[in-house]
Simulated scan of single mutants.
Amino acid sequence: MSTAETWTINRLLTWTADYFKKQQMESPRLEAEVLLGYALGCPRIALYTRFEEIVNDENRAKFREFVKNRVAGMPVAYIVGKKEFYSLNFNVTRDTLIPRPETEHLVIAILDSLKTWPANSALQVADVGTGSGAIAITVAKQAKTSQVTAIDASKGAAEVARKNATELGVADRVKVVLGDLLSGVDPQQKFHAVAANLPYVSDAEFEQLDKTVKDFEPKSALVSGPHGTELIAKLIPQAAAHLHAGGLLALEVSPMIADKVGALLNANGNYEPAAIIKDLAGHKRIVTAKRK
């Protein structure tokens, strides 16, 4: 970007979108708009009424740094510190995974299961491996009578989840706690649903991940172990001990391990037959089972 030329918002967007396209990014124009809006401190949509506005040197320098980081592989969500999920805006940091559209299927499975309980029930939900709190907070926003326990082993992630719960107005119904799966939960505590988007990438799969994931997102939130099912296998009996009869365990998984996870649930003996839900791309994404 030459400083000798007049850089309007429209010109910056056009130049950057073309540059991103040459870098083979999937959504070059959208990413350029998100980053420039962040540099200017305004919503992306507001740029459309300001195309001819000249961007000053300070904001152009900010934008240039964002573009540099993006080309280096840093995801846009980490650059701007935000990611939309289920029409809500979540803070994210490199202590948390970036919420993904596929995870909305997990939220829907939980919400559908909660509707089967009597109206106005004091619904108890656990979100294990909460990260940014996207699942827990979305459930609390949608299921108005629910109380959600959001658990994560990462102190940094728990802090982000608490901040999101406060900013999104559900801090009174989302309790964020540090813990190893459900091991720290009161033995008498029962839940109507347990959701978990746990690490499910195997050690070998991790090496094949795109650099935007492998180099920037927290490995501890991605990798389970040699098989990808280690943490899920540990959670299944724990959840059985904490679910009401008829309560749902819903797990987000890799398509590669969906059938194995279903077999683990069926072998446990405490659940009704497992069901597998496919995402919009047709991949096996969510495995669910009700407590007998």
Rank of each mutant, 00 (worst) to 15 (best):
I45F: 15
R29D: 03
R29M: 07
L13C: 14
G41M: 08
P43Q: 05
A17E: 02
A32R: 02
P43L: 03
E26C: 00
Y19I: 12
T16H: 12
I45L: 14
A32E: 01
L47D: 06
P28G: 05
P43W: 10
T14L: 15
Y48Q: 00
W15E: 15
G37C: 09
R29E: 03
L30W: 08
L47R: 08
Y48L: 03
Y48R: 05
L13P: 13
F20L: 13
E26R: 03
L35V: 04
A39Q: 10
T16K: 12
D18V: 04
L35G: 02
Y38S: 15
E31Q: 12
A46V: 01
D18S: 14
L36W: 01
I45S: 15
T16M: 15
L13M: 15
Q24R: 14
Q23F: 11
R29A: 05
A17L: 08
S27N: 11
F51H: 07
G41N: 05
F51E: 01
E31N: 14
L36K: 06
L30V: 10
M25C: 04
V34R: 04
R50I: 09
W15F: 14
L40C: 01
D18W: 09
Q23G: 00
L40V: 02
C42P: 00
I45P: 00
E31F: 06
E31H: 06
L36N: 02
Y19F: 14
T49F: 01
D18I: 01
E33H: 06
E31I: 08
Q24N: 07
P28A: 01
T16L: 15
E31C: 06
W15N: 13
C42L: 15
V34Y: 00
M25Q: 09
Y38A: 14
P28V: 03
V34M: 09
S27V: 07
L40D: 03
E33N: 00
Y38R: 13
L35T: 02
W15K: 10
E26H: 04
Q23Y: 10
A46Q: 12
L36F: 09
F51P: 00
R44Y: 06
T16G: 10
Y38F: 13
A32N: 00
E26L: 11
E26M: 04
Q23L: 05
P43C: 07
L36G: 07
L30F: 08
K22E: 10
K22Q: 11
I45Y: 13
G41E: 05
T49E: 00
F20E: 05
L35R: 04
A32V: 03
K22R: 12
A46Y: 10
